[in-house]
Design a protein around this nucleic acid. Structure first.
Lengths: 226, 226
DNA sequence: CGGACTTTTCGAACGTGTTCCGAAAGTAAC
DNA sequence: GTTACTTTCGGAACACGTTCGAAAAGTCCG
């Protein structure tokens, strides 16, 4: 594509045929066309028309590549207008964060890696900023605000992960497979619940749990001066 | 080991050299001796003295194998004596669950898979039973109790996952890498926190967040009749 | 022009989990 | 004893992410 006619750089060395931007663009193309499971290093290289190992000179690893793609997607999300009430603002921001992650199942593979947030662009950190800011507006100290975000993040990441791996297999969720034939003497409450578990597990309890978590966290921080 | 002299079965077909129990035992041996990262299918097969692909006649997949090993470990945990107060009991049970998972980093690979709880033996389900029972004792309906467990599980699984992938890489946690040089005009609160994030992130905030979550969940369920 | 240096490209190879298919080793019936 | 059937075993092969080392294709300097 890029005509390698003249030497566009003042730099030395063999002129590159491939650019990081090109790789990311091709990866997005594959993800949207064939699904993210089809995104492999060799396929990506073939799509660009280049050797597989060449990619590793522009990207440290596949995970690194996914972070790049994720950052692009996060950049396209518009920062939502949030409620003025601090508590509602935290919840709204968390839900936005959750929905964004849930929309891209492949994000799960990255979301839990080392300093995940450290890999994000500034354009994506508004989620963190908004939650921390709202917590402080409520009356939290900076340290408390960090705990608030951390806890919300744990809860959200866990839900995303279970959700992603549940969707992958038909019969889902974390319900015990056959609650019916449990030993009622050792596990009476589970046995009593029985197949009711499946019914409840069908629904989306993320917002409910989130509200509980946020209320509990804010109650810890300060006695709701309002 | 098992002498294949006579025919111990009334069954037909070639008599097996390998048993599922033998495979699980060898897997545990490798995990304890060389670390769980060294547990590969080929190495496990070599340890037993059998072809690699043979294992797949006794175990559906490596994940399946790990579930078997995990069940064994969970079976060795003694069911803790829990406080009588329902709220404290939920927290104690959750902490026990968390500690168990945190002790075996390799459990993370399974913990989020499809119907995870459905893969567990009865000997490991007491954690679920205890939490559900305590929630009901507090005044929750069965449906509410399920939500309580689910939420706790999400939060716990998320923490475990982030913890595991953090420990893997030295510089850790989910803190933004260089909070110092953030654009203070767009992300003022994060910039203000700066490197304080690292300090707070060092500590273990799991119990704190857990208490907040449980308090919030129980407040949702009923107005604490005590 | 010709060598030194620098950067990019890529084929070969490794170790991973997993699938396929044929060979091995028993029992059961005739 | 021979034939059929059934189960277990394991070598070959595949796609995957990744590493290594050598070749390619430039610039720069003498």
């Amino acid at each position: 594509m890029a005509s390698p006619t003249a030497s566009p750089h003042g730099r030395t060395g063999r002129p590159p045929l491939t650019s990081r931007a090109q790789i990311v663009a091709a990866a997005r193309e594959i993800i949207e066309r064939d699904g993210w499971e089809r995104l492999t290093v060799r396929r990506l290289a073939a799509e660009i028309g280049v050797g597989a190992t060449t990619l590793y000179h522009h990207v440290r690893s596949k995970e690194d590549l996914l972070v790049l793609v994720l950052n692009h997607y996060l950049g396209t999300i518009e920062r939502p207008r949030l409620p003025s009430d601090p508590r509602d603002r935290i919840i709204a921001a968390a839900v936005a964060m959750h929905d964004a992650a849930a929309a891209w199942p492949w994000a799960v593979e990255i979301v839990t890696t080392d300093g995940f947030l450290g890999l994000l662009d500034e354009s994506a950190l508004w989620m963190v900023e908004d939650i921390v800011a709202a917590a402080e507006d409520y009356g939290c100290t900076p340290a408390q605000a960090i705990v608030v975000f951390r806890s919300i993040w744990y809860y959200t990441a866990g839900e995303i992960l279970v959700r992603a791996n549940t969707a992958r297999s038909r019969a889902g969720d974390l319900r015990p497979a056959s609650l019916s034939r449990l030993d009622a003497s050792r596990l009476p409450r589970l046995a009593a619940i029985g197949d009711h578990w499946a019914t409840v597990s069908q629904g989306d309890t993320y917002p409910q749990g989130l509200r509980a978590l946020v209320d509990g966290l804010l109650a810890q921080a300060g006695p709701a001066v309002s």
